[in-house]
Every structure is written in structure tokens, then in C-alpha cells.
Design a protein around this nucleic acid. Structure first.
Lengths: 234, 234
DNA sequence: TAGTGGTCTAGACCACAAA
DNA sequence: TTGTGGTCTAGACCACTAG
């Protein structure tokens, strides 16, 4: 394993084991030594080795089974974290001055596709909020939100006129589960106008339906200006 | 906290603490009891409470600091895992019969934007592979891969003619780091032909540059058929 | 049924950051 | 300075499952 120093704290052990895997010395499907054997090698207790291996297992590098031992994961399906940020914060951290403009807000009857996605009766009353997010004065995103009134009690005009709705929601209507879809669309005329871009430009649409303990909170459509990208990494 | 039974294993404690947060009893910014106090309440040792709280911290619900105590996260930025699957597996698990057709493969001189992304000299020789992925005979994705020869030694025609390149790469050229970008594009004419869709249709393009210990492996452009979506959730 | 990982304890010392 | 979480130990018992 490592030539000179034998690590004995769990982070170092994790690093060392990971190197065996990434260097190809321990290949996918290989069974690696038992906890007790590794503990003896590293000169520490089984708990410490266990901590390191457990961490690698939750990261997807190892598969562990009682009695079956620890095996290098056959299919290292790496997950790239795609975050769902607060819009103003995202713009700010990109080094731009965030702006916010409310386009519309008020109760409406839910259109069929919204009602279906939220599990409501068609025509049920929902709160519809549309707003524009700017970066250095340039329109970057348009949010189109449909909220279930019962789940956002206390949200009113004094909130959405002064600050973005998502910041109120984050504090007062936390979600426990969400479904996210990313698709490419041709920019509709009305949105293209807000973005000051040619209509039909290809742009990203992120749709998110959120629940709190199996009760639907709302549906968000986040339209991105043409040319905007989502970035992530492993 | 929980009304009747007082949990004493770490998963139950995590569940119990999470409920305090999600029910709004412990609000963002609130300091929660110290480990020792929780241990006394739950009737277990500090280690067990620590395990539960550590788990909630890595999940983003708590923020912990030595001497500062444990605080409910002010900004519960939830991460949605976006997986980078093996293409044939993804199609198969969607209930369709996967197909694969090689479009082109061989050495080429790297175009400027590819060379730049990979950190190579412009005109350096790279391996260029283009292939079509089908679901039930219908084209779903086109992969456009540029590989650094030194990093994929052993990859040859006998591999890419019989099976998708990504399956060889996964086993033989594991990545340690990757940068992923998702954007919307208008389908170029040549790709639209393969997809049998109108050109200029808005569609998703996923670009991934991968490294192994700071050495570039390759660049992948994955073009999606118009209408295809990426799905994930929390 | 036996062997492996999963969990918990009771204690100790340490590292860091707030007061 | 001092209180908090972070880590480690040495041991024990348990839960799951492969053989």
C-alpha cells in the first residue's frame, strides 16, 4: 500500500484505500481484506477502519455486505450534485448584482397540467406568481410558480413585492421531497421579450414539483435565458 | 420530542431530530442541545448521538462547529443527484431494448475548442469516436467523444465495433474528477438527420470533461433527441 | 451455522473557535 | 481560556447472509 508512512486516522485510511482502487490495484469486483486484517495492517481498531470503509461505501466506491465482505464496486456510478440554489444568492456568487422584478401574483384557477402535477382537482384555486431575476440589470431567469394555498398560509403581497418568493418559501414552507426535470425548449414570444432575445431561441427549462410529507406544496418552472448553462462536477 | 417511545439507535435519533427541524420546532439558525444533553435525553452515549448529528450535517440540515455548537442550517441547499449512467443500462432500465451503432472512430487532430478544454496543444492527435444509441430502434442519444490516446491505451477497433465505448472506459479508464455542463441547443442538421427530427429543434447537450488525477482523459458531448428530459429528485 | 459487517458503550484525549 | 465537537480505543453483542 503506501510505501513509507502507514496512516492510522480514518481520513488517511480512506485516502489510502481509495488509491488502491483508483490505481487499479484493487479492481472492480475484487474482494478487499476484512476489517480486522486492515486494522492490523494500519495499526488501529476495527472501528476506525470501518469508518473509512463506510465512507467509501456511501460514496459508491465500495459495496459491503455482512458475511459477504467488502467488494470494490463493479459499477462506479458517480453522482453529480445538482444544487437548487436561492436565485439571488446564485447570481450574487457569480459576481453580479442581483435584481428582482415581480411580474404577476395572485390567486388563479389551476390549468389542467398544473392541477395534475400537483394532484389537485382541475380548476382548484392556486396562487400564481411570476417574477424576473436579473443579474447586473440583465434578465437571467423567469420563475413561474404555482403554489397550493393551504401550504403557504401567511404568504402575502407584502412578501412578494419586497423580496423574491423563494426566500420566504425556504424559511416557511420547507420541502421534504422534490421531483426535478430539465428540458430544452424554444423560447416563447412573451418570455423572449423579457429576456430581450430572439424568440424560438433554445433555452433551458427546469421544472420542480415539491412536497412536504406527501402533501404537494407547489410547482416551479424556471426558464433560463438562451445560452445559460447548468454546471456541476464530480 | 417524540411523544411515547424514546429512540436510542442512531437512525431513530436522526429521524427524531430531523422531525424537530422539519416540523419547524427547531428553526433555521436555532442552536440545538449539546451532544451530551441529547445523549442524556435519548439514554445513550455521546458517540451515538454524534453519529446521528454528523449524518444530518453532511446531508446539509445541520451546521456544526467546535465550541460553537450545532445549529439548524440557515440555508438548506439540497443537492439533487444527477447520475451519469451507462447509456445502454439507462435505456434498458427505461424498459426499452438498447441498440448501438458506431458512426465513426479513429485518430484525428484536435480542433481548437477540444484541445483547449483538454489542455492539449492545438492539432494534437486525439481519438474521435461518434456513436448512436437507440431505444427500441429509435435514436435517443448521439455521443461525440474525444479521447487522449495516452489515457486509453488498449482501446481499439475490436472494442468499439462490438460494444459501446463507455463500457470499456468505465472499466479501464476510471475518472477521478469531471466537469459537467448542461445546455440547450438547436439541433444541427446532421444530427437531426440521425434523430429523424426537424433541424433546429431545441434539445439538450451534456458536455463532460473528465480527468484522472489531474490528467485529462477526454471530452464527451452527449446530444439528446429533441423532447428528451433529464430527471432527478431529492 | 459460522463469518462478516453494523452498532453501541464508556472512556479518553485532542483540535478548534468562541468568549 | 474553556467549552464544544472530532476522533480513537478496546471491547461487546447483534444482524444479516453466504456457504
Amino acid at each position: 500500500m503506501s510505501k513509507d508512512t502507514i496512516p492510522s486516522d480514518w481520513k488517511a485510511i480512506r485516502r489510502d484505500v481509495l488509491e488502491q482502487i483508483q490505481s487499479g490495484k484493487w479492481k472492480p469486483g475484487d474482494k478487499i481484506p476484512r476489517e480486522i486484517e486492515l486494522a492490523a495492517y494500519y495499526g488501529c481498531t476495527r472501528s476506525t477502519v470501518g469508518r473509512a470503509l463506510r465512507d467509501l461505501a456511501t460514496a459508491g466506491f465500495l459495496e459491503r455486505r455482512r458475511k459477504g465482505g467488502t467488494v470494490v464496486a463493479a459499477n462506479p456510478t458517480r453522482k453529480a450534485p445538482l444544487d437548487v440554489p436561492i436565485l439571488r444568492d446564485a447570481i450574487r456568487s457569480a459576481g453580479a448584482e442581483p435584481g428582482y422584478r415581480l411580474l404577476r401574483a395572485g390567486p388563479e384557477r389551476a390549468p389542467p397540467e398544473i392541477a395534475t402535477a400537483l394532484g389537485l382537482a382541475v380548476g382548484a384555486e392556486v396562487l400564481h406568481v411570476q417574477a424576473l431575476y436579473l443579474a447586473d440589470g440583465v434578465a437571467h431567469q423567469i420563475e413561474d410558480r404555482w403554489l397550493v394555498p393551504a401550504m403557504v398560509r401567511g404568504l402575502g403581497p407584502d412578501h412578494w413585492s419586497t423580496q423574491p418568493v423563494d426566500e420566504w418559501l425556504l424559511r416557511n414552507a420547507p420541502l421534504t421531497r422534490a421531483k426535478i426535470e430539465i428540458e430544452a425548449i424554444a423560447l416563447p414570444a412573451e418570455l423572449a421579450g423579457h429576456f430581450d432575445q430572439p424568440e424560438q431561441s433554445p433555452s433551458l427549462l427546469v421544472t420542480r414539483v415539491s412536497w412536504r410529507q406527501s402533501k404537494p406544496i407547489g410547482l416551479l418552472r424556471l426558464y433560463h435565458a438562451a445560452g445559460q448553462r447548468l454546471k456541476t462536477g464530480i
